[in-house]
Amino acid sequence: MRLHREGNTIMLTTALALLVINGLAYYFLFAGNTTAIVLVAVVSLVLFALVVQFFRVPNRALTIHDRQVVAPADGTVVVIEETEEAEYFKERRRQISIFMSPLNVHVNRNPVTGIVKYFRYYPGKYLVAWHPKSSTENERTTVVLETKNGIQVLFRQIAGAMARRIVWYVKEGEPVEQGSEMGFIKFGSRVDVYVPLNAEVKVKLGDKMQGGVSVLAELPE
């Protein structure tokens, strides 16, 4: 396991702030009160551990398959439905949504190998991730990848109530590999994936996903 570079500044800032707080507690606020000083130290360690775990990237054997769409994020499947995709396809697609809790791994991965045919970033609100309008009103990105067979898969990084910054590493026109890092949503939220209606969905509501490993759907030949 390693720690993601997106967390470097936050982890350093958090560590320094907690050191200052513990210094103040030891020398001024609770001088001579051993119980209070130890309590502050324990709470500080727990808080720092929570921040660090947001940025962990575990070692995994990634799923690589031309016809399979892998989960772009860790989390729980909360939506599987046929819906109108109005931004890019402007027709009906199968939507699969994964909710990322603050305890999940937050790195996002490319669900298929292909070419980035479309990319857009939208600043927006920070509604809770399960709000019906979060897909269209929250801060988000939209990425469309085209496989070598000409099938297009769209996915969105969507910020939530806690997330305040979406990071991406893809550009229109560039090739990407399935399972490679495409971005990061700081402190969780949600990812939506849109596949063709004739794709075979391999998950059900409530399933726990591992980004880059779990198979969401199988594309037609």
Rank of each mutant, 00 (worst) to 15 (best):
E172L: 00
D192E: 03
T13H: 05
S101N: 07
T13R: 10
G212F: 06
N138A: 04
V51C: 10
A199T: 09
A36S: 13
V191G: 03
I64H: 14
V176P: 07
Y118P: 00
L18Y: 14
R120K: 15
P58D: 10
L62T: 10
I64M: 06
S189A: 15
K125I: 04
V57I: 13
F99H: 12
P58E: 09
I166M: 04
M100Q: 03
V112L: 13
I21H: 07
Y27L: 11
S214H: 08
L62P: 14
T35S: 12
R2S: 11
W168C: 05
L127W: 11
T14E: 13
T142F: 01
M209V: 04
V170W: 08
T9K: 11
V43K: 03
G114D: 07
T63M: 09
N33D: 15
V105A: 08
I37H: 04
V105P: 06
K186G: 01
I64F: 13
R165I: 05
H65Y: 07
L12A: 15
A163K: 03
L145T: 03
H106Y: 09
V213P: 11
A71E: 12
F48L: 15
A73P: 07
L18F: 14
A73I: 08
S134M: 05
A41E: 09
M1N: 08
E6V: 04
T113R: 11
S97Q: 01
V153P: 06
S135D: 11
K148F: 04
F55Y: 15
L62D: 05
R67Q: 13
V40G: 06
Q53S: 15
M11E: 10
V42H: 05
F119T: 03
E221T: 10
Y126I: 09
T83R: 03
M100I: 15
Y126E: 05
G211T: 08
I158P: 06
V78D: 12
L127E: 09
T142P: 00
A25T: 13
Y121C: 00
L29F: 15
H106M: 02
F119D: 02
L45Y: 08
E85P: 02
P123F: 04
A159R: 04
T113F: 02
K125A: 12
Y169D: 07
V38N: 11
V143D: 01
